[in-house]
Design a protein around this nucleic acid. Structure first.
Length: 113
DNA sequence: TGTTTGACCACGG
DNA sequence: GCCGTGGCCAAAC
C-alpha cells in the first residue's frame, strides 16, 4: 500500500464516490492530507488510464465542471452527471452543496442518512 | 537537469 | 465582492 502513488490514492477515493454524489478536489486532498488540490487535478487527468474512476463526479470548489474541456465529446461530463441524477446547468452543478459528498463519510458512515 | 505549467484552493487587499 | 498572489507536488518540455 505504501507503494501507491498519490494518483492511485485519489483513484481509490474517487471510486468510492456513491452514485448521485459529487466531491471536490480539495475534499480529496484534505482527506488524503497529502500534497494539494492541484495534485488531485493531475491525478484525475491521468485517471483516464484507470478504469472505474468516475472523474465526472469530481468538480472544483465552485461546483463547476472544470475538467469538462478534457472529457471526450463535448457535454459528455454533464450528461453523465445528469444520468446519475445530478442536475447541471451551464457546466455547473445545481445545488452542488446538496450533492456534495465527503470522503470521510466512508470512515463512519453506517449511520445512514 | 532546470524551468514551466497544471481538471486547484485559501488568503489578502 | 472581485482580483491578485502564494503554495503544493509532479509531469512535460
Amino acid at each position: 500500500m505504501a507503494d501507491q502513488t498519490y494518483y492511485e490514492l485519489v483513484y481509490q477515493v474517487v471510486r468510492q464516490i456513491p452514485r448521485g454524489r459529487v466531491t471536490t478536489y480539495g475534499a480529496i486532498a484534505d482527506y488524503l492530507a497529502l500534497g494539494s488540490a492541484r495534485m488531485v487535478g493531475w491525478a484525475l487527468h491521468q485517471s483516464f488510464a484507470a478504469e472505474g474512476v468516475p472523474a465526472h463526479r469530481v468538480v472544483n470548489r465552485k461546483g463547476e465542471l472544470s475538467g469538462r474541456n478534457h472529457f471526450p465529446g463535448a457535454g459528455m461530463m454533464q450528461q453523465l452527471l445528469e444520468q446519475e441524477g445530478i442536475p447541471v446547468s451551464e457546466n455547473k452543478v445545481v445545488a452542488f452543496e446538496r450533492y456534495f459528498w465527503h470522503p470521510q463519510e466512508l470512515d463512519g458512515f453506517r449511520g445512514g442518512r
